[in-house]
């Protein structure tokens, strides 16, 4: 114990001397890691006779991060309140189905389809939030339960893709404005909105306060229940948007599109990679996007190198554990100082 404290003091002194202005927050770390990854990846892919960061490569990385980015941005808000949402993967599939089946190929139904899908998502988020706050069920169990209910509904009613989106709606999935795909812009727009919500609004500050210490927040007059419910609804709507985007991309709704990609655990991994604390109160959208980009870059590099797909999972697992171990180490030194 005393050794740890001494080390911590030493680290604190070093930090105080050298660390003015530019501090190595998790957000900065994650982008430095991304940069390092891009450099190493470029070299590896270059040695293999390819180019990682030409226009196609960059677009590839961005396109890969679109859906996970949408889900992870929502997940960030929930995790900051100290909650989490395991139901997003099935919700993505459900919303893609709702959107595609409502549209049923007709142009006129595009707006109702999107609105209905987002409405369904909001209701699921509301249920999540209410189960957590009113029934006082642990968020892990509450959202796992809702996820299982959604899964039962999907398995009972669908065996494969259903519904179809009109051609006009597929523009969302495939068109570009200049060089940038619309989907990427959508994702960045949602991320910017979430950033604004978290950093510039009262409700956003409350989100951090509730995650930091819920009792202190309550005693300070924050309506903690309302804050948690809001976070869950926003998270679900973000997942709903991901589902709508996937419907546009696939041309129909697919029940297991979310779970096949493992968006539930993957989005949590991205958020945590971005420097958020699972216990809540710490983290941010900018870091999360960095985490998503790291995962997408890893994928792209491995594809370019034609690495065995199963190897990706191994690396992902290691990256996740190492990253969080590094953050935890820093937090330890900071806290005990």
């Amino acid at each position: 114990m005393s050794v740890v404290q001494q080390k911590a003091k030493l680290a604190d002194i070093v930090r105080r001397d050298g660390g003015r202005g530019f501090s190595l927050t998790p957000t900065v770390t994650v982008y430095l890691a991304l940069l390092a990854l891009l450099v190493v990846g470029s070299i590896l892919v270059g040695l293999n006779g390819g180019v990682l960061l030409d226009q196609g490569g960059i677009l590839n990385i961005l396109t890969r991060s679109t859906v996970l980015g949408l889900v992870a941005v929502g997940q960030t808000i929930v995790i900051i309140t100290g909650s989490l949402d395991l139901s997003v993967a099935y919700l993505v599939g459900l919303c893609s189905l709702v959107a595609a089946e409502t549209m049923a190929g007709s142009d006129g139904m595009m707006v109702p389809g999107v609105l209905l899908a987002l409405g369904v998502a909001a209701v699921v988020g509301l249920v999540n939030g209410l189960v957590v706050t009113v029934l006082k069920v642990n968020a892990f169990i509450a959202t796992l339960g809702v996820a299982l209910i959604l899964r039962g509904y999907l398995e009972d009613n669908y065996t494969g893709p259903a519904g179809s989106v009109p051609r006009a709606f597929q523009h969302l999935g495939f068109d570009r404005i200049g060089p940038v795909p619309i989907g990427v812009l959508l994702m960045l727009l949602v991320a910017a909105a979430a950033w604004w919500f978290l950093k510039r609004t009262r409700a956003g500050y409350h989100t951090y306060a509730v995650g930091g210490d819920i009792d202190v927040a309550r005693l300070s007059g924050v309506r903690t229940g309302r804050t948690i419910v809001t976070a869950h609804v926003l998270c679900a709507v973000a997942a709903g948007l991901a589902g709508v985007f996937l419907a546009s991309r696939l041309g129909s709704g697919a029940p297991y599109v979310g779970t096949d990609a493992g968006y539930d655990l993957e989005s949590i991994a991205a958020v945590v990679l971005g420097g958020a604390a699972l216990a809540g109160g710490r983290g941010g959208v900018v870091g999360t996007i960095g985490g998503v980009l790291i995962l997408a870059t890893l994928d792209t590099i491995f594809d370019d190198l034609a690495v065995d797909p199963f190897f990706k999972d191994v690396v992902r697992g290691i990256v996740l554990i190492v990253a969080v171990a590094l953050y935890a180490r820093r937090k330890l030194t900071r806290r005990s100082a």
């Binding site: 065995d308 999972d313 191994v314 554990i321 969080v324 935890a328």
Partner: peptide
């Protein structure tokens, strides 16, 4: 020892095991 929350550790382990076995 590394102070990583067990949720993350075992999630990472899940990914590693899934990948490694099929690799």
């Amino acid at each position: 020892k590394l102070l990583v929350p067990s949720f993350i550790v075992t999630l990472g382990m899940l990914l590693i095991l899934d990948g490694a076995v099929f690799l």
